[in-house]
Amino acid sequence: MSILFASFIIAVILLFTIGVYSLLMTRNLMRILISVEILTKGVTLLLIAIGYVTGRMAAAQAYVITIIVIEVVLLAIATGIILGAYRKNDTLNTGFLNNLKG
């Protein structure tokens, strides 16, 4: 393993740690979206690093473009759902979204 690829892998692991820690610790719906975005950044970085190391950068770019399209659609729909929840409950805190008494 080259030292560059190891640096990328460590950066991806750190990005995943940040994203998962934030997902577990936050109660704000918009911040949950930010955490998911950071996890997606980690996946994107891993794909590009693998494409660079294996010489298949074109294939890696194709996958990254697909991921970006899915990411933006996810964010648009999730924002719509979050705004709907906010209008109904007047809060973004997941601790208070207990209409189903779960």
């Binding site: 660079y52 770019q61 399209v69």
Partner: peptide
């Protein structure tokens, strides 16, 4: 790293469009 097309997508969509959607929300 030589992924210019993916970089352009990341910059325009993730740094641009997603930020606009997020701040509007």
């Amino acid at each position: 790293l030589g992924a210019a097309l993916a970089a352009a997508f990341e910059l325009s969509v993730c740094a641009g469009l997603i930020t606009v959607i997020f701040i509007s929300a």
